[in-house]
Design a protein around this nucleic acid. Structure first.
Lengths: 119, 119
DNA sequence: TCTATATATGAACAGATATTCATATGAAAA
DNA sequence: TTTTCATATGAATATCTGTTCATATATAGA
């Protein structure tokens, strides 16, 4: 859609100053995309459950699958997404791979979300 | 899938104590679902952009559409989702409806996400 | 080496989601 | 009341996403 095609309301409603100010402080496209991508990772209850389990201690894929009562493949797929988002890290120990939380933002973000809900 | 059907690894890998501890602290199904639902709302760059714009000042739907260069219907649909998640509130003034951030969790959550990315 | 076990991954499919289009609703002005 | 403008919403569609199934890879042990 071309910029000039965007419909807009009459003089009363358009606040040029506010629009301009908003655009100045807006992060660039790439960053907005990255932020949304990060929250997308938190936006699935299987992944939230994995993170909650890892709050307690590191676990291998098999433990995670058993705890969450899901098959190993589904867990592996989700772990891959969590790893790409740098929310978890894996460490191989023989045949097993143990996963743990990558940093403390995970906890903070989930806690904030939980706080928002409980209002 | 029945519980007994879940595949699991041999003695080495299963850590019953850890699994039990993890399950004890796990929020119940409803809450896990709600948390995921909330983050799902943050997991879309259009909605993130709307929230960033509202960081600066309240705006009517038309202003939002123009600022983000999107059509009014798309913005209205997204505002509905944001409103349901109690992230924004609307106030009618004549023909226009002005939207603003519902509370400060919005800022905190997005800031935390941004922090995590910039590492 | 060959076998068994733990994890990873590609393909397929079902279900969810964002945008667009058309239209309805709500409010103000004529 | 009728018209006009701002917003809301249902339906349709294209795209994306999570799970499953089958299979590949990696490691340890025989």
């Amino acid at each position: 859609m071309a910029l000039e095609d965007v419909e807009h309301c009459e003089d009363f409603c358009v606040h040029e100053d506010r629009i301009q100010r908003a655009n100045e402080k807006m992060p660039d496209e790439d960053e907005l995309y990255d932020i949304a991508e990060l929250f997308k990772v938190f936006g699935d209850s299987t992944r939230i459950r994995i993170l909650y389990v890892l709050f307690e201690s590191e676990l291998c894929v098999c433990d995670l699958a058993q705890t969450l009562n899901m098959n190993q493949s589904a867990i592996s797929h989700q772990l891959k997404i969590l790893k790409q988002a740098k929310l978890v890290t894996g460490r191989r120990e023989g045949k097993s791979v143990f996963y743990s939380l990558a940093d403390d933002h995970v906890r903070t973000i989930i806690d904030q979300g939980r706080e928002h809900i409980e209002e």
